[in-house]
Simulated scan of single mutants.
Amino acid sequence: MQLDMAADELKSVLNRLRRAQGQIAGVIKMIEEGRDCEDVVTQLSAASRALDRAGFSIIATGLEQCMAQEGQTPADKEQMRARLEKLFLSLA
Score class of each variant (00 low, 15 high):
E38A: 15
E78G: 01
S48C: 07
A6M: 07
L87I: 04
L14C: 00
A6Y: 05
R19L: 14
K86H: 10
Q2F: 03
L3T: 11
E78W: 00
K86G: 05
A68I: 04
Q79H: 01
Q65D: 08
S48F: 07
L14W: 02
V27R: 00
Q72R: 09
D36L: 01
Q43I: 04
T73F: 02
K11N: 05
A54H: 14
Q21L: 11
A46Y: 14
Q65A: 13
I31E: 05
K86T: 09
G26R: 11
M67Y: 10
L91D: 06
Q69N: 10
P74W: 07
L44R: 09
S45F: 05
Q65W: 04
E9L: 08
V27H: 00
D52G: 01
P74F: 04
D8G: 01
K77H: 02
A6L: 08
C66D: 06
I24F: 08
G22A: 11
R53S: 15
G71E: 12
K29Y: 00
A25Y: 12
M80L: 07
S45L: 10
C66H: 06
A54V: 14
L3D: 09
Q79L: 01
S57K: 02
L84P: 08
N15P: 02
S48Y: 09
V13D: 05
D76Q: 09
L51S: 07
L84A: 03
E9T: 12
A68L: 04
R16A: 12
G22P: 06
E70T: 11
M1T: 09
A7I: 11
L10Y: 05
R35D: 14
I59F: 13
G22T: 07
A75R: 13
T73S: 11
A50Q: 15
Q43E: 08
M1E: 07
D76Y: 05
D39Y: 05
L10R: 10
E85R: 15
E64L: 05
L89F: 07
Q79R: 02
D36W: 00
M30T: 04
G26E: 14
A75K: 13
Q2I: 01
L3G: 06
V27Y: 00
R19H: 13
M5W: 07
K29F: 01
S48R: 13
D8P: 01
D36I: 04
A92H: 04
I24L: 11
A47M: 06
L14V: 03
L14I: 03
K86V: 04
D4C: 10
L17R: 15
I24N: 09
G62T: 08
